[in-house]
Design a protein around this nucleic acid. Structure first.
Length: 424
RNA sequence: GGCGGGUUGCCCGAGCGGCCAAUGGGAGGGGACUGUAAAUCCCCCGGCUCUGCCUUCGAAGGUUCAAAUCCUUCACCCGCCA
């Protein structure tokens, strides 16, 4: 079972580094193993980048192991220097507390907390970190750390190069090591997973466990997601793609996956999809044989949107997408279908008693552009469309004649940035 | 605490009294070509009541007809010394 898990993870490209491979496999094989991943509350929501690691967690649970989802109520107050070239700004405790709650909710969608055999559990490192006094911490934990080694860690060394590091963030690795020690003691947690940038922090925990408890535990890291063109995964023009539907609409979420470029879709399927291997291989084949159909992208978008926002919501946004990107004959769509599709888009309402604003104003009002200047620019550059038809002229204002079903206008910027106007 | 260097638009980075909304690169946006893809080529990229006006060059004051550019104070960062 566990060697299968390992082989599968390797095939999917999800293995960066582990501690001694054979003994880890042996450990996993011998019994269901408790393992943990930490998530620091650095934002109000998790984003698609976090999904990589979350789904590996799920794969471990499906293989019979016991996940501990650790939310960094304490570490989130301090700030992880890994992968950053400058100091984080500290967030208020109340803010971090709120984010902890959000993240817990989101994590709960991906793990099974109710199964009898190997239920997932949630933990918060604030529970064991807060009661420890600074003096205790320095004496009991700090004594086991060599500053020489701490300085040698990538996360610290690179910061010494770039902009320096505060004592606060320098201490982060000690806190994370303490987490691992605590989970090892309390729950016999033997494995920590994380992004490959976490290697140093995880290893610090292993050292601490060895020194304090004489025990041995394991580390497993996952490669950081990289796009084929070198740009950062999980970002769109609007910023990060969040799991929170208030921050990234399910429609935008679906579109994010649907627009995956061919060069990346194989990787994404392997990393994010739970389809079996033969199905994934079939989809990869379709990218070569019939790329225009985008079957692989569609399946990917459908699966991920369902997983994060539910099957119903996924079906809705998929229907909206195909309606809006279909034939271009929007007025042929029946009113109900169109209304449903438009409800997924940014929307602005205007009163039927007032004169229609210019469409420059409307574009700006819907938020598809940042400002009126930007709206003017788009119009000037021939990138603005009304009801899928290209129109030019900054002063153009829609009239009743343009309304579809007497209520709707569909505005578009560029190829795929849509918004709706409803007259009420 | 002392001395020196720095803080410029989303990011990096020029500018060092008027010709500066501010060179260049990256990111981003639009068009053409396509498949809601990539690559490529062209264009754009502070805001607005847009042939002009307004607000930006760490913050607040000051000098000057005129300041991102000079002076003063403050904040933060970096280096060396204590």
């Amino acid at each position: 079972m566990s060697s299968e898990l390992f082989a599968d993870l390797e095939w999917r490209g999800l293995l960066a580094q582990t501690t001694d491979r054979d003994s880890l496999i042996k450990e996993l094989k011998s019994a269901p193993t408790k393992f943990y991943i930490g998530f620091d509350p650095t934002a109000p929501s998790l984003h698609v980048g976090n999904l990589v690691v979350i789904l590996v967690m799920r794969r471990f649970q499906l293989a019979g192991h016991l996940p501990i989802a650790l939310v960094g109520g304490a570490t989130g107050l301090v700030g992880d220097p890994s992968g950053r070239n400058e100091e984080r700004t500290l967030n208020d405790e109340s803010v971090v507390l709120e984010w902890v709650g959000n993240i817990k909710n989101q994590l709960s969608k991906f793990l099974d907390f109710d199964t009898k055999q190997n239920p997932a559990v949630m933990a918060n490192n604030l529970v064991w970190t807060k009661p420890v006094s600074a003096l205790e911490f320095l004496r009991d934990i700090g004594k086991h750390f060599s500053v020489n080694q701490m300085l040698a860690k990538d996360s610290v060394a690179s910061r010494l190069e770039s902009g320096g590091i505060s004592y606060t963030e320098f201490s982060y690795q000690v806190l994370q090591a303490f987490d691992y020690l605590e989970l090892y003691r309390r729950d016999n947690c033997k494995l920590q997973l994380g992004g490959s940038d976490q290697w140093g922090n995880i290893v610090a925990g292993l050292d601490l466990i060895r020194k304090v408890e004489g025990g041995s535990a394991h580390a497993f890291t996952i490669p950081l997601m990289a796009k084929s063109d070198g740009s950062k995964f999980g970002k769109t023009a609007g910023g990060s793609v969040w799991l929170d539907p208030e921050m990234t609409s399910p429609y935008a979420f679906y579109q994010f996956w649907f627009n995956t470029e061919d060069a990346d879709v194989e990787k994404y399927l392997k990393v994010f999809s739970f389809k079996d291997r033969s199905e994934i291989e079939r989809l990869i084949e379709t990218v070569k044989t019939n790329p225009g159909a985008r079957e692989a992208q569609r399946e990917l978008a459908r699966e991920l949107t369902s997983m994060v926002h539910g099957a119903d919501e996924s079906a809705k946004v998929e229907a909206a997408s195909s309606a809006l990107f279909g034939q271009g004959e929007l007025n042929l769509l029946d009113e109900k279908t169109l209304a449903a599709a438009l409800s997924q888009l940014p929307k602005v309402s205007i009163s039927k008693n007032e004169a229609f604003p210019t469409w420059v104003d409307l574009l700006a009002a819907t938020g598809v552009v940042d400002s009126k200047s930007a709206a003017r620019r788009i119009v000037k550059e021939n990138g603005a469309y009304l009801n899928n038809e290209k129109i030019s002229g900054e002063d153009f204002a829609p009239t009743k004649e343009h309304l579809i079903h007497g209520r709707f206008l569909v505005l578009r910027k560029g190829k795929r940035d849509l918004a709706s106007v409803e007259v009420i």
